[in-house]
Design a protein around this nucleic acid. Structure first.
Length: 519
RNA sequence: GGCCCGUUCGUCUAGGGGUUAGGACAUCUCCCUUUCACGGAGGAAACACGAGUUCGAUUCUCGUACGGGCUACCA
């Protein structure tokens, strides 16, 4: 009863605890997102902790990248490296001393022991086992034949310790016990402890391993729900044991092991190489490797809206139980729950990602888009400030016309270039198929009739166009595409007559003449 | 190899002892449109296999197959 009450009163706290070994992969972003959604949903806190206990794998800039990526995604950090909080520091390397005492506590209580085997010796054990078609594991079955404080006399152990012989501290996992725990996504999961190895808790360099560090931190930081990738499931029993041996079982967080993101094709989990191979980003932000200088694409730079990116990621492995697909962050928070997280890994679908962006693009405000576009157009086409194509009203109309035809904002300058500058060349397929010199009189009539127009509107220009065509015994279809190409250069684009009206009499006349003279 | 997790259209998924197995992306057809899109309508498309339980299994159980993860002094 007390336990349940305690449980109910505990403020929900989740964390995202990446290791700064490079840019955040989209799978990692999804893990962070789910942890964030869950915390927000329950009015709790979301923390960012940096797990940098492996100094060999430290990559400069990775931590900054992680913070920037989360920020771009709209995942707000309540506590952590970038914002501080009551449990500072949030970087494990700076908490180094805290871990040691817990490792020692476990040694004293008999749940952990010193091991002096060198990396080479263990490697040799593995090779020997492999040769015999067996697997070497440092565990209950093998530990008594290895070099550790369980096999050595206390004097010998003492001597080794005093002579600064490198050692690690290992968890003493009991033989043949059933370890059961309840995963938020998978339900009850069982392991036999004989198959769990004696995990290293404290490395010979004095740093803790993930296994010890994340538990000490989660406990101290009062984490209630530990959300992580499925790759951690096999080591979960060891973690349960550590909580038990530290007498923290009542404060142990609920674990949720998320399914992994798989390659769009073929086998295996999604990797950076798939992005390169298939042409889609696997990182939220562009990343330049500080060692090799190699640049990896990011969703942000590719032109994705963070809302679309998050929306897409959220739907990969989770569903609301309804048919809604487009979600704002707040809607995701309201709808999120672990019992709608799918158990199986999800193949990443780059095409659906594009679709999500297109959906979000349609929702964008025209005026805002126009202001962004105006800047880009000015720069892209090197136009002077006072150029008529730069006026907000004009650009807004462009946005309105272009919007349903694009999936990314940056396509506007390319697909709609003719709205801002005259074409440099004409679609050769249309010209080749449709152009005949006999058409010249029609176009000459058309141009003079348009030039006489008092109100150069879509309706009027269209009316005149059909009228002149009729008088020349030409079906509109024969010349419509040509007219489009003469004015825009492209075979397809926004509605023809509204475009003509927008461009205006003078511009259209100029473009038509230029085109005609080059025929 | 061992251990763990998983398996519904090509993909993301809903569902769950009796359903015409639903939606979305992609794909195809048609409509709208004298272009391209958007939009609308429709089509094709799935319960891995084998046993068992049951009046009845896609749904429950067990096997098999397949997929994924782990098997480091990495996380």
């Amino acid at each position: 009863m007390h336990f349940i009450l305690n449980e109910m009163l505990r403020r929900v706290r989740t964390r995202f605890a990446p290791s700064p070994t490079g840019p955040l992969h989209i799978g990692g972003v999804r893990t962070a997102l789910y942890a964030y959604l869950f915390a927000r949903k329950h009015g709790g806190d979301f923390l960012l902790r940096i797990e940098d206990t492996d100094q060999n794998r430290f990559v400069p800039g990775a931590e900054e990248y992680i913070i920037e990526a989360l920020q771009w995604c709209g995942i707000h950090i309540d506590e952590g490296v970038s914002v501080g909080g009551p449990h500072t520091p949030y970087r494990q390397s700076e908490r180094k001393e805290m871990y040691r005492q817990y490792a020692m506590q476990l040694v004293k209580s008999g749940h952990a022991y010193y091991a002096f085997d060198t990396a080479e010796e263990l490697e040799q054990q593995r090779k020997t086992a492999e040769a015999a078609k067996q697997t070497f594991a440092y565990g209950s079955a093998s530990r008594m034949s290895l070099k550790n404080s369980l096999t050595l006399s206390s004097d010998e152990t003492e001597k080794l310790l005093n002579s600064n012989t490198p050692y690690v501290i290992r968890l003493k996992v009991p033989a043949d016990e059933t370890i059961v725990f309840n995963d938020l996504i998978r339900g009850e999961v069982q392991f036999n402890s004989s198959l769990v190895d004696d995990k290293v808790l404290l490395k010979s360099d004095g740093m803790p391993t993930y296994h010890l560090a994340h538990i000490v931190d989660d406990y101290q930081m009062e984490i209630t729900h530990a959300i992580r990738g499925e790759e951690w499931l096999p080591s979960a029993p060891a973690h349960i044991l550590i909580y038990q041996y530290l007498n923290w079982k009542d404060k142990m967080p609920h674990y949720a092991h998320l399914p992994l993101l798989l390659k769009p094709d073929g086998k295996g989990k999604l990797s950076k190489r798939d992005g390169d191979r298939l042409g889609f980003p696997v990182f939220p932000l562009e990343w330049k490797d500080p060692f090799s200088g190699e640049v990896s694409n990011g969703y942000r730079e590719r032109g994705y809206y963070p809302e679309a990116f998050i929306n897409m990621l959220a739907m990969l492995g989770w569903n609301p139980g309804t048919e809604q697909e487009i979600f704002t962050m707040q809607e995701l928070i309201d709808a999120f729950s672990f019992d709608h997280v799918h158990k199986a890994g999800a193949r990443f679908d780059p095409e659906k990602a594009v679709w999500f962006n297109a959906q979000w693009l349609q929702k964008q405000d025209d005026t805002q888009m126009a202001m962004r576009l105006s800047k880009v157009v000015k720069q892209h086409f090197n136009l002077p400030d006072e150029h008529r194509s730069l006026s907000l009203e004009y650009v807004k109309e462009c946005v309105r016309l272009l919007k349903p035809r694009i999936q990314f904002e940056q396509e506007m300058t390319v697909k709609g270039s003719y709205l801002f500058v005259a074409p440099q060349e004409y679609d050769s397929t249309v010209i080749g198929k449709k152009w005949k010199p006999e058409l010249m009189p029609f176009f000459n009539h058309l141009l003079s009739a348009w030039a006489d127009l008092k109100s150069f509107t879509a309706e009027e220009t269209e009316h005149v166009f059909k009228d002149i065509a009729g008088k020349n015994n030409i079906k509109p279809g024969e010349v419509l595409q040509l007219t489009r190409v003469f004015i825009s250069g492209q075979a397809q684009g926004v509605d023809l007559f509204p475009m003509i009206a927008m461009l205006g009499n003078a511009e259209v006349n100029q473009r038509m003449k230029a085109a005609l003279s080059s025929m």
